[in-house]
Nucleic acid binder design. Structure first.
Length: 483
RNA sequence: GGCGCAUUCGUCUAGUGGCUUAGGACACCUCCCUCUCAAGGAGGAGAUCACCGGUUCGAAUCCGGUAUGCGCUACCA
């Protein structure tokens, strides 16, 4: 198959893998998997100054976590420098590029002047038509030049973006951009075009911020005699204030989402729906459905804001869909790191297995599991004594209720949910209380909170001794509170 | 400043000239279920489809202008 799809995810290791980049990777991956094509990872490490240690691993980890497996790469542009040099050289000898000896200072001053005069900033092309003699003089001064592209001074560059339709740019608005920097590294523009050609990329799916650069790339393809790929620019993901995503928007790195207990499957589903939709109602689309239904035609053109509430909801949906064992295994590390230090380690897996059914349907993130289950593990419960006294009750009736309950529970041999219900439900009526009142007092006594999993199941897991001890402690609190 | 692009409930979105009194989801509110919470069920509120003008028998959908926002305008990607 000569015409099969080849796409790439081309991150630059200048920082953490934020959700916008990851969403771009996802769309590339979905597009490749949908069409039976090839997904390639290429690290664009051409900016030596901004390179961040460990960034590549973080990016690759993020992809692996989400299950975005790649078929080729990762390739590193820093290891392919000759290729870019050759291309630049060829462009120079063809007359499509030239050496520029302007100093950074001169460029900066020039730009400042242009801005001051409210003119469009851009290189003034001083070195575009240097004579051999002038060039030789500059070389003699020991200046290492950059290579600039000789952008056509007139005409238009147009292309048909798969998502945005036909886009037209006037060539005279594009300046002579740099292809090769003086440190020998290529700029994004050169490296990107050379590699996309060499790697036979058929579709370039990248963020919208590249739309304005695309005419430069088209011009380069043309000058190099390469067949350009199809372009599809993806809408951006913005922060809640509609500004470009940055650290102050909270979690922006995909690794943070993992740490906060989001499931990769939920993350994939959620991210896929940021800028893409199947129809007017389908929200839950697990990976296989995503792959089979993904299409560029249904990618939207408007920037999206990441809605945490909806992510939380969706993560809850995925958590509930897990098998109990799977959920337990995934929750384990979060329990281990989230439970107070005083709780003895290693945690008992058997005990945890009995707790998790009560937690699974209530957790929206794995990180919440530790908090939701904490009272199952700690020795001392910490709560305000007033919580023991429910609506329509007072200290006396609360004490009496707990005291009586304690007496009835003590002789119980079987301490399962059913037996507990048989004993406690009638007790409420006997005490002249509503079930909510009795159970509420017991719930607080036994869990320290007013919202918890169902009482009988909870008590059953806690066990008779622990329940009795906690009820005793609650009675103590009530007595102290009354002094 | 120049160039490019966008604009439907708070947010994600459906919608490509009549099927639309603009549909769904999250969040919010009410009710049901119920020992609390969660989940689930039933309802509700929430969008003059940015604005102005035009084309048309008919426009969220087509055209023009304005506003706002975003992106690019680096020897960053």
């Amino acid at each position: 198959m000569t015409n099969s799809v080849r796409v790439r995810f081309a991150p630059s290791p200048t920082g953490y893998p934020h959700v916008g980049n990851i969403r771009t990777a996802l769309f590339n991956w979905l597009f490749a998997r949908h069409s039976g094509g090839t997904f390639i990872v290429r690290v664009e490490d051409t900016d030596v100054a901004r390179k961040v240690e460990g960034a590549v691993e973080a990016i690759l980890d993020g992809l692996r976590w989400l299950g975005l497996d790649w078929d080729e790469g990762p390739y590193y542009q820093s290891q392919r420098l000759e290729l870019y040099h050759e291309a630049a050289q060829r462009l120079v000898s063809q007359g499509d590029a030239y050496y520029c000896y302007c100093s950074p200072q001169r460029l900066e001053e020039m730009r400042a002047e242009q801005v001051r005069r409210k003119q469009p900033p851009g290189y003034d092309r001083r070195c575009r038509d240097l004579t051999e003699k002038e060039r030789a003089e500059k070389e003699a001064e020991g200046i290492t030049p950059v290579v600039r592209f000789k952008t056509p001074l007139s005409g238009q560059t147009r292309f048909n973006d798969l998502i945005w339709g036909e886009v037209v740019f006037e060539n005279d608005t594009i300046d002579d951009f740099v292809l090769l920097k003086s440190d020998g590294y290529p700029t994004y523009h050169l490296a990107n075009v050379v590699d996309d050609h060499l790697m036979e990329i058929t579709h370039v799916l990248r963020a919208e911020e590249w739309l304005s650069s695309t005419p430069r790339h088209r011009l380069l393809y043309q000058a190099l005699g390469f067949e350009p790929p199809q372009f599809a620019h993806l809408p951006m993901i913005l922060g809640a204030d509609r500004a470009k995503l940055s650290k102050r928007h909270g979690a922006v790195s995909i690794t943070e989402y993992r740490e906060q207990g989001y499931l990769p499957e939920a993350m994939v589903n959620f991210l896929a729906l940021l800028g893409w939709s199947l129809d007017d109602k389908t929200e839950i689309l697990p990976q296989p459905e995503l792959i089979s239904s993904f299409s560029l035609e249904r990618v939207s053109r408007t920037a999206a804001i990441l809605n945490r509430d909806k992510l939380n909801w969706m993560n809850g949906v995925y958590i509930r869909s897990l098998s109990l064992e799977d959920f337990t295994q995934r929750a384990l590390p979060f329990l281990d790191s989230g439970l107070p230090a005083e709780v003895k380690r290693p945690l008992s897996i058997d005990y945890i297995r009995r707790i998790m059914p009560l937690i699974q349907e209530r957790a929206r993130t794995l990180a919440e599991v530790a908090e939701l289950a904490q009272f199952f593990f700690v020795d001392q419960l910490d709560y305000a004594p007033g919580l023991l006294i429910g609506k329509g009750m007072n200290q006396k009736s609360a004490s009496q209720a707990l005291e009586t309950a304690k007496q009835r529970l003590e002789p119980l041999e079987v301490f399962d949910a059913e037996s507990l219900e048989v004993v406690l439900r009638p007790l409420a009526e006997e005490l002249g209380l509503k079930t909510g009142q009795l159970f509420g007092a017991l719930r607080v006594a036994v869990t320290g909170r007013t919202a918890a999993p169902p009482l009988f199941q909870t008590m059953s897991v806690l066990g008779r001794e622990r329940c009795l001890r906690r009820i005793e402690a609650a009675l103590d609190r009530l007595r102290q509170g009354g002094r």
